[in-house]
Structures are given as C-alpha cells and as structure tokens.
C-alpha cells in the first residue's frame, strides 16, 4: 500500500465529514448528494482490487456507523407486552458488502477509464449510486417488511443519483491531483502492457 492509497483513505474520511453538511432538497423528493459513496466509487475505478476492498470496508463501516439504527438495550426498549416488535433494522456492516459489490461493478470499466474516458466512469458512478440506493432500500424493506414502492421513491433515488453524479468531475480531478502528488500512475498502465504484448 502506497501513499496514494492512504490519501484515498483520507479522502473517504474527509467525504464522511463533508457529508454532514450536504443538504437534502425537499422540492426534489428529499433527494441529496451522497459524497461518501461517490468518492468511494470514483476511487474504486482508479485502484486495484485490494485497495478497493479496503476503501469499501472503511466507507461502509463509517456509513453504517452514521445511519444504522441499532435496537435499544432490553432495559430501554419498553415493556415487551406492549412493544412486541423489537424494532431491529438492517445489520451493521451490510453496507460494506454493498460498497464492495459496487466497487467491483466500477472496476469492470477500468479499461475505458485508463483510456481517458472518465466521463463513462462518471456516468457509471451515477448508475452505481442508483443501484446502491435501490439495493439499500430493498435491504431495509426486507428487514422491516411491507414492500412500498412509490413514484416519489423512484424520483428520490433518481434525483439523488443525478445530483451525486454531477460532482463526479470534481472528484476525478481531486483523484488525479492526489495521484500526481504521490507519483501514482492511474492511467494507461494496463493498456501499455496489453499493447506491448500485442506488438
């Protein structure tokens, strides 16, 4: 692991801090900007599988620490005769697996990214956010029951994916700057070896 990978780890943690200040837009069905997933997805396409898994673990861990509602201890959960539903939620750590899946999804487009077609990766990041939110909602639904699919739900996921995707160029610019700072080569590595082999 090099300095560049550590800088990406720091970037994910920084995104987690900035995530605290991102607003949600009520007029767009409460859509928001998801900085942590965005930084992870963009970083995932620039590194190998090993560092990507480390980033997925960190990002998922922080995400769940903030969001997952853990059941209260039995002494604070109220009389079980009245509150017969223990009130559990999705298991802490489920996001790590979702992040890893999305990371592998992003890595599928690494050859295009290495050719300099970052805009395809940006588009894919938007799709990945859409899939991530859909999967997250299905996980929550699976645990809580009652599958509720509404128009506003679809709009919320779509607007969130779109708004988040708009920040992709900025995140890629930061990633390139970090790579340059730590003398890490993001592009052309794989293609160069493939071309050499072809020659």
């Amino acid at each position: 692991m090099g300095w560049n990978h550590l800088s990406l780890l720091s970037l994910v943690i920084t995104a987690c801090i900035f995530q605290q200040f991102t607003p949600s837009f009520q007029s767009l069905c409460d859509a928001g900007i998801l900085l942590v997933p965005l930084v992870f997805l963009c970083a995932a396409v620039t590194v190998g599988a090993g560092p990507m898994l480390l980033l997925a673990f960190t990002a998922g861990f922080l995400w769940d620490a903030q969001h997952v509602i853990t059941p209260l201890p039995p002494e604070l959960a109220g009389n079980p005769e009245v509150y017969d539903d223990p009130g559990g939620d999705v298991k802490f750590g489920y996001s790590i697996m979702l992040y890893a899946l999305m990371g592998f999804f992003m890595q599928g487009l690494q050859p295009l990214f290495r050719e300099g077609k970052w805009h395809v990766s940006a588009l894919l990041a938007g799709i990945a956010i859409f899939l991530y939110l859909s999967a997250e909602y299905l996980c929550v639904t699976f645990v809580r029951g009652d599958l509720i699919i509404s128009r506003t739900l679809f709009l919320k996921i779509s607007f969130t994916a779109l708004l988040t995707m708009l920040l992709c160029p900025l995140v890629f610019w930061i990633l390139y700057r970090l790579a340059a700072l730590f003398h890490h080569t993001i592009s052309y590595e794989g293609l160069a070896s493939e071309r050499n082999a072809a020659d």
Binding site: G50, L53, F61, G93, I96
Partner: peptide
C-alpha cells in the same frame, strides 16, 4: 495479493456482522 485482500476483507466483514 488480491486473493489475500479478499480473504482479509471477508474476515473483516464477518467480524463486523
């Protein structure tokens, strides 16, 4: 190296879950 990373990742996820 990727295989080792995957094994470590699975161990980490199991621990968290």
């Amino acid at each position: 190296i990727n295989f080792i990373a995957l094994v470590l990742f699975i161990c980490g996820v199991t621990w968290v879950l």
